[in-house]
Structure formats: C-alpha cells, structure tokens
Design a protein around this nucleic acid. Structure first.
Lengths: 82, 82
DNA sequence: CGATAGGGATAGGGTTGA
DNA sequence: TTCAACCCTATCCCTATC
C-alpha cells in the first residue's frame, strides 16, 4: 500500500503562504523551485501545493461565511444565529 | 440524524473479499462498479466498502493478537466513578 | 511533454447508536 | 462500555485543457 496521507506541517503551510505572497496563487511550480521555500517542503509536488492552497482557501471562506474562526464540530453548528 | 444503520450481509462481505482479491484493497469505486460484484452490494458507497474493509481488517488483527490487553487501554482501570 | 484547475476517490480520525 | 456502521474532510489522483 503505497498511498499514505502525510499531514502538512505548520512549517510547510507557512512556506506555502509566503510563496503565494511572493509569486501568486497558481504559480505552484515556481514556488516549489524557489530556493527560498524549496527546503521547507517535504516531498510535495506542484499539485500538492495547489490542493493544499485550495483547502486553505475553502476553509477560510467557510469560516468567514459562518462568522466563526474556530469550530470544533461543524455538524453541530447548522442553526443560524438569532 | 444520519442514515439508519444497516448490517452488512454475508453475501456483501463475500463480494467485498472477492473484489479486493481481484482489484486490490483501496480500489473501492472499481470494485463497486465491477459488474461481477455490483449486484451483491445493497446500496453501499465506495466509502462504505472502505469502512467495512477497515473493520474487517482491524478485527483480523485483533484476533491475531495473543494478548488482548495490549490492544485495549489498561489505564481505564484507574478511572474513579463516585 | 509540463503545468494548472477542478472534479473525484481514498485514508484516517471522529461520531453514533444499539 | 464496545465497536460496526457511518460521517468529516485533508490529502491524493485523474484528466481536460492550455
């Protein structure tokens, strides 16, 4: 079974944010090959960076739309505020 | 409220085993769409197949263990219950 | 062929309910 | 309580398109 999930470390996420700030979202291969960030990523591909950024973006959008920054269990938070 | 829980039938479990033997563990959607097995599954999703296989595997590992106390958590004995 | 976007599938942690 | 069944979703894969 060669397919195990490897969670992103805080260090990798920080490098991704910095890379996007420098080069722009979508420039995954450029970020990955930038010597300023390359060593921070632990065997990630350009597609991995894209997927992680999408995940971070989706989460940020969701948290904003529900006016919550920290949610422990989204399933319990379906009701609207009065 | 989630779905009502439906126990897996022997027929479904046998189909799952055969599917894994043919396509490999992890190929859940492929197994599910294989006409050789599809009719054996009663409205199961690829995730259902994955979860069932995990349960079967965990159970097999547990049965293989010679010392069940290593599997459960011995610290639970310390719990005080007034 | 290399890269990105987006849909889809899987892995593993978490939750539920009998 | 336990654990099979089911949920959540980050991670990873497939492929159309450029």
């Amino acid at each position: 079974m060669g397919k195990q999930k490897r969670k992103w470390t805080n260090n990798e996420v920080e490098a991704l944010h910095a890379g996007v700030k420098k080069h722009g979202a979508g420039k995954w291969t450029l970020i990955l090959s930038d010597s300023q960030f390359a060593s921070s990523f632990d065997n990630r591909s350009n597609v991995d960076l894209k997927d992680k950024w999408r995940n971070l973006t989706r989460r940020a959008i969701w948290e904003q739309s529900s006016n919550r920054e920290k949610v422990t269990n989204p399933r319990l938070e379906v009701t609207a505020n009065p």
